[in-house]
Design a protein around this nucleic acid. Structure first.
Length: 427
DNA sequence: TCTGGGGTCCTAGGACCC
DNA sequence: TCTGGGGTCCTAGGACCC
């Protein structure tokens, strides 16, 4: 990107909450919280819930029943199927507004506005905002600037000052110092808790001060990554748009259990289930992997005997055939397992990933692409796509699955299951 | 009772090579 | 007293993002 680039950051407001509201208008104006896996903590809050003093990360069970009742607080288990599907729709709408769209996260995208210099950018972004609102029922905020980091700042302003109407334009802003001084240093994109603590100790408390810091010192303390952030705050674009979706380098599937698990066979089941999920994701991207890693851990927050370990193994030939991995995962876990601990979590990670067509060849073994194993997997995936996931599964994942996560307050899969479509009734 | 899950990038340091 | 120097590759760990 060059100095004269233009970029808009579109970010959905309270995305998970807004998805729930989009399908249930009665939730408008209510204090709403979305829970983490296992219904443990609150990961997303509506503004009304924030106003009651509840913080992100608060343990759900610690909200007293009288408090919930008094303020009519609505809690939901996270429904990632719904949020993921809504996300795809948002991105589809946004892509009609620019030739260059970078999907940055489930609820955010950067839009290149290169070539739009002569338009009224603020008005154009209001149009984007209104379109998403009208077509999907989701509120978004838009920040416009010459660098991604500044677009993040502008987006923050758009969210925090309702007066600007959800869009804030920082391109050639006359009072950059004033806007940046308003942003706390830990709220700058690229500055996490560790760096924020260090910077504050050095007297740098806001984005403006950070933008004025000595480049050499910044690079020494925060690596090249920190230096880029500083330059971006100064309006020099260093972080390019990423228009191609990079193939994944690793795929992780792991979850905390809904209850403590000490039995090896149950751990094996859970690991097999996550393994199967991970390899499914691998195939969805037409990739193969040769390395698999398994980890398991007890609950580090509890005052009881602790144990954590991981081990990895390599397949002789890259594969996307689930049973190849199930066998390894089974053996690795058996090796690591120690009796007498209450385990909280296992995870499976795939790495050394390549595209199916680029996998290294083996003289003595067929490649995944040319093998009947691929035919079998395609068949399984096809069935699960047609009839719903888990229609066909591996016996290794068990049937009772007592380790499954808790999701007591799950909303319907409004957009992805026929049986759960919202119904509109004439009164 | 609870304290998520899934990613990426960068650097330092060790192993190994000539 | 001496015990090079420069390069690459790999891994672990730390930082960040949502």
């Amino acid at each position: 990107m060059k100095r004269n680039d233009l970029v808009a950051l579109v970010d959905c407001n309270n995305f998970y909450v807004s998805c729930e509201r989009a399908f249930d208008p009665r939730l408008a104006g209510k204090a709403i919280g979305i829970l983490s896996n296992n219904d443990g903590i609150i990961v997303a809050l509506s503004n009304e819930l924030k106003a009651l003093g509840v913080k992100r990360g608060a343990a759900a069970f610690k909200l007293p029943p009288w408090f919930i009742k008094k303020h009519d607080i609505r809690l939901f288990s996270s429904n990632y199927t719904l949020y993921g599907d809504m996300s795809v729709r948002v991105m589809q709408v946004l892509s009609t507004f620019t030739p260059e769209l970078e999907v940055y996260s489930i609820d955010e995208a950067f839009l290149s506005l290169k070539g739009f210099e002569n338009r009224d950018l603020t008005a154009y972004c209001h149009e984007i905002r209104q379109t998403v609102q009208q077509w999907l029922g989701l509120p978004v905020s838009v920040g416009i600037a010459r660098t991604k980091t500044l677009a993040k700042v502008a987006n923050r302003v758009a969210k925090k000052f309702p007066g600007v109407g959800g869009v804030y334009n920082m391109v050639d802003h006359p009072r950059m110092d004033k806007v940046l001084s308003w942003v706390a240093v830990e709220d700058v994109w690229g500055v996490g808790p560790q760096y924020a603590r260090m910077l504050r100790k050095e007297g740098i408390e806001n984005a403006w001060q950070l933008s004025q810091a000595a480049p050499n010192w910044i690079q020494q303390k925060m690596t090249i990554v920190g230096l880029r952030t500083v330059r971006e705050l100064c309006g020099i674009s260093c972080i390019d748009m990423e228009l191609d979706i990079d193939p994944k380098k690793e795929i992780i599937s792991s979850k905390s259990f809904g209850m403590p698990v000490d039995d090896l066979h149950l751990l094996q089941e859970a690991a097999a289930a996550y393994c199967s999920r991970a390899v499914e994701k691998l195939r969805a991207e037409h990739q193969v992997a040769s390395m698999v890693m398994v980890y398991l851990t007890t609950n580090r927050f509890k005052e009881e005997p602790q144990y954590a370990n991981y081990q990895q193994a390599r397949l002789p030939v890259p594969s996307a055939y689930t049973p190849d991995f199930l066998v390894l995962v089974h053996a690795l876990l058996e090796d690591m397992y120690k009796r007498g601990f209450n385990y909280k979590k296992v995870g499976v990670m795939l790495s050394e990933i390549t595209h199916q067509s680029k996998a290294p060849l083996d003289f003595f073994a067929p490649t995944y692409l040319d093998d009947e194993r691929k035919t079998i997997m395609d068949c399984v995936d096809g069935i699960n796509r047609r009839w719903g996931s888990h229609t066909m599964d591996y016996a290794a994942i068990g049937t009772l699955q007592p380790w499954q996560m808790k999701r007591e307050f799950l909303s319907p899969h409004y957009t992805t299951r026929w049986g759960e479509l919202p119904v509109v009734r004439a009164l």
